[in-house]
């Protein structure tokens, strides 16, 4: 049902369209079962950035201090978005891997589930 408002056909303007981010797009990244990083991390990234550069250049700055991080076997990582699981091609861009503006990426590292495997830190 459309909103009821004083003005007919009221519609707020879109505050966060991709054109407002100076060539970047917003990407949210969540490392599952490592809840001391207790929210999806929001970063602005160029859509042309290769997925491999996200792994090598962006994720270490966010999650690198976690003792599990150095142990990650990136070939075994399970990636997903709200559209379901996907296998990224590290040579291709974020956009070509289906990562659009405001996509949330969740990744799971089998065998690595937080300090002491308890998922909460």
């Amino acid at each position: 049902m459309p909103i009821k408002a004083i003005t007919p056909d009221y519609h707020g303007d879109f505050k966060d369209g991709v054109e407002k981010f100076h060539g970047n797009q917003i990407v949210n990244i969540h490392w599952e079962k490592h809840l001391m990083f207790a929210w999806p991390m929001c970063v602005p990234l160029p859509p042309a950035m290769p997925f491999g550069a996200l792994i090598e250049g962006v994720l270490p700055g966010i999650f690198g201090k976690h003792p599990d991080f150095a142990k990650i076997d990136w070939n075994r990582v399970e990636w997903s978005t709200s559209k379901g699981a996907f296998t990224p091609d590290p040579a291709k861009s974020l956009a070509d891997n289906g990562i659009g503006h405001k996509t949330t990426i969740r990744f799971r590292t089998p065998g690595l589930n937080g300090v002491n495997g308890n998922a909460v830190c």
Binding site: H30, K33, P40, M41, C42, V43, G61, S82, T104, A119
Partner: peptide, 27 residues
């Protein structure tokens, strides 16, 4: 040091977990 994904409605960071599964974020 990284800013959070926010909820479009309540504007809290998306930090809450699924009812019945406290180790999975409810996104």
């Amino acid at each position: 040091a990284t800013l959070p994904q926010l909820c479009q409605v309540c504007q809290w960071p998306c930090l809450f977990t699924e009812s019945g599964d406290p180790t999975t974020l409810s996104l």
